[in-house]
Simulated assay, not measured.
Amino acid sequence: MTAVFAITASRIFDGQNFHQDAALVIDGSKIGAVMPQSKLPAGIKTLPVGNGLIAPGFIDLQVNGGGDVLFNNQPDVTGIETICAAHARFGTTALMVTLITDVPDIRDTAVEAGCQAAQDAVPGFLGLHLEGPHLSVARKGTHDPSLIRPMTEDDLAYLETKAGTFGLAMMTVAPESVTPDQMRRLVAAGYHISLGHTDSACAVIADYVDAGATMVTHLFNAMSQLGNREPGLVGAGLSSPALHCGLIADGFHVDPVTMRVALAAKQGPAHIFLVTDAMSTIGTDSTGFDLNGRAVYRRDGRLTLADGTLAGADIDMLSCVRFVHERLDQPLEEALRMASLYPAQAIGAACKGSLTAGSDADFIVLSDKIDLLSTWIGGACVHEAKAERREARA
């Protein structure tokens, strides 16, 4: 494609509104404009997609793996590239590669890989999400309890030094292992703090929101629940206008009825946004993998440890969008926002999540049946479904 070109479609969703018979003008790696096809400048190079729907690319703030790579098991640039490419096949144009609780050496190696990926501008790499090890053993989920520990001054000093070197920085922590003062220092250094894997009371959560926490990790899972006398982290997340809440919409982690209640209850301006919590199985026919020396089994859309504990998710973002739209009866535009605009707002990625002039040219083309036709990052096509089908026939 030339530096400036246009893609025409029967519908374009810009993150807020639909435009009929419109054109998306791409200027290098940025969005130039969304305009009626009839208003396109004469002579501009155009790519028609007919009845396709153009929408902002998906943004996933919790991706542990993909393409047969689990970041904990391959914490290097090649691992990051593989994970990003695997999820691009399902419409994700920006993601936070997530490191699950591990030993300090693995953390340090992962951070250095993130630094290199940021320098190399790996397509789709938004930054690192460090999920642990500073969590609560009581709400460990699939995290190895022997590796969970309180944050030390050495941990904090290391994290402060590395902030800003590996793209955007996100951490999931629990009040049981991190003090409010430590959190304030992390926030001051540039980390986006998400609360999760905690059994803390709602009043305690309020103190951490005051200290700078802005997100909740995989709402309802591995946290204190909403009760009649104790609202827990679930109640805090839904009632706080400052807490953006990630949600795994696979039908296994959270019941659809509970999801509908949460969507109706959430107080803004923060929103519930979609995350996959995807593991290495995405884009593969693998039957399982190892995490911290423990076997994880893939069966019937679920990933579990031997004892049945859910171990991440076996779902891509496009499937989450379909679930929210078709099973939860959310309008398509809201399902798309939950996978693009809302996570961009949660992580402070102002140039992503919408198709407005000056935004990054990260977008997808969908069919009228919500099948993915192509994925574009920075104005370049990184995946085309037709090409994939041609390879399969060959």
Rank of each mutant, 00 (worst) to 15 (best):
N51P: 09
I106E: 01
L53R: 00
P331D: 00
F252R: 14
Q16C: 15
D108H: 14
E333N: 15
L186T: 08
G43R: 00
I80V: 13
A394F: 09
P123G: 11
R229Y: 01
V382I: 13
L310H: 10
A222R: 00
S38P: 02
V261M: 13
D255T: 12
D102P: 01
I347Q: 04
V216H: 09
G379C: 09
S240K: 07
T161F: 13
G283H: 10
A264Q: 15
Q119L: 14
A113T: 04
T217N: 11
L372M: 00
L373V: 11
F166K: 01
T152W: 03
V178T: 13
Q62S: 04
K266A: 14
G212T: 09
D105W: 13
D144Y: 02
T92I: 07
D250E: 06
G127Q: 03
N51Y: 06
V254R: 05
T46S: 11
A357D: 08
G57F: 07
V137L: 06
G164S: 06
A350G: 04
I7R: 05
K140Y: 06
N72T: 02
V324Y: 06
G167I: 00
I272C: 09
D144V: 11
G288R: 02
M223I: 10
F323R: 06
R393I: 12
K386N: 10
Q267P: 08
I315P: 05
N64Q: 11
P104D: 07
D300G: 04
A22R: 12
V234R: 14
A380V: 15
D290P: 03
A55V: 11
C202T: 14
L47F: 07
A392W: 03
D181N: 07
N221S: 01
V275K: 09
Q345I: 02
P331C: 02
Q225F: 01
R89Q: 14
Q16N: 14
L318G: 03
E112W: 02
V261D: 13
T217L: 04
